[in-house]
């Protein structure tokens, strides 16, 4: 019984390894190219950000971060992320649930629509809101009559951020939920769980890693978004400048230390995200592989 299995396996394995095993120099060359590329395009710029930020010493660095306008930019960025990310979590779960678990008309259309922010330039995403909520826009008159300020204020910045970040959570969850199918949920329901219990104890634990990845990516992008936010911000110092916008302003004022100090915070955030993701993978690697299916 065992012999035939081995025989049929061996030749296949041999032919495969012969096809993919390059000579040692080629392997080294490929690795060198990959590392050099990463060093030049990722590591070097990152080092320069921190180098410029600390160019005039640590005192100047902390001083520029304690500037009131900078503080307000940091606060605004955190506020926007704190609104946009939970909104996108709710939206992402609902959309993924609908697409993965139900059959309905317009499903393909909905899936395509979710990808829209990836394919649309962020500047357009911002301009869309100007056309909708601007004084000359579709709802401009009505908003003004009711004293509601959306554009050039926090609501507009949040809207633009939600727009550009909404695919992240949904995109992580849809393939995961589709792959898992309805089996676990059907089992739970047949054992007497209600809808909410099924969601909370079966579906959510099944997709938690995908969800966490989506949240991390969504958060990183919502803090880093420049184009769309720039269009709807109005650039009022200390009020509607987010961190990326503030970096540009400080740079244009020849305040290199200030600009790179804020940039280093954003870069630091990206690093934290990366470390968090790696730690999760190390600690729960097997579990993630099991639930993600790859």
């Amino acid at each position: 019984m065992a012999d035939p299995v081995i025989k049929s396996y061996e030749p296949h394995h041999e032919s495969r390894s012969a096809a993919v095993t390059e000579s040692r120099p080629v392997q080294l060359l490929l690795m060198a190219v990959a590392f050099a590329f990463l060093a030049i395009f990722l590591l070097l710029p990152l080092i320069i950000v921190f180098h410029e930020a600390l160019a005039k010493g640590f005192g100047a660095y902390t001083e520029s971060l304690s500037n009131p306008d900078t503080r307000s930019a940091i606060r605004l960025t955190l506020l926007v992320a704190a609104i946009a990310v939970p909104l996108n979590v709710v939206f992402g779960i609902s959309a993924a649930w609908a697409i993965a678990k139900f059959e309905f008309k317009g499903k393909a259309f909905l899936t395509t629509l979710i990808d829209l922010p990836f394919s649309v330039s962020p500047v357009i995403s911002g301009l869309v809101y100007v056309l909708l909520f601007g004084a000359q826009g579709l709802f401009g008159e009505w908003l003004r009559a009711h004293g509601i300020q959306i554009l050039f204020a926090v609501p507009g910045i949040v809207l633009a951020t939600v727009f550009v970040t909404f695919p992240f959570v949904a995109r992580e969850l849809i393939p995961l939920m589709q792959e898992q199918g309805n089996g676990d949920e059907e089992a739970a329901l047949s054992l007497g769980a209600n809808g909410w219990q099924t969601f909370w104890y079966v579906t959510l634990p099944n997709v938690k890693w995908g969800l966490l990845y989506g949240v991390l990516l969504c958060n990183a992008r919502s803090m880093g978004e420049f184009g769309a936010v720039s269009v709807v911000s109005g650039h009022i110092r200390g009020l509607t400048n987010t961190m990326p916008l503030h970096v540009e302003i400080l740079y244009n004022e020849y305040n290199a230390v200030g600009a790179f100090a804020v940039a280093s915070l954003l870069a630091g955030l990206a690093l934290v995200t990366l470390v968090l993701k790696t730690l999760l993978e190390m600690r729960y690697g097997a579990e993630i592989a099991a639930t993600r299916g790859h």
């Binding site: 909520f133 601007g134 004084a135 000359q136 826009g137 554009l151 050039f152 109005g234 009022i236 110092r237």
Partner: peptide, 20 residues
Amino acid sequence: IQQSHGGSGAQARAVIDGLD
């Protein structure tokens, strides 16, 4: 006093679009 700075044409556009 709050300040907003940018290209002059772009700033005029923002005021037209409702920058307060």
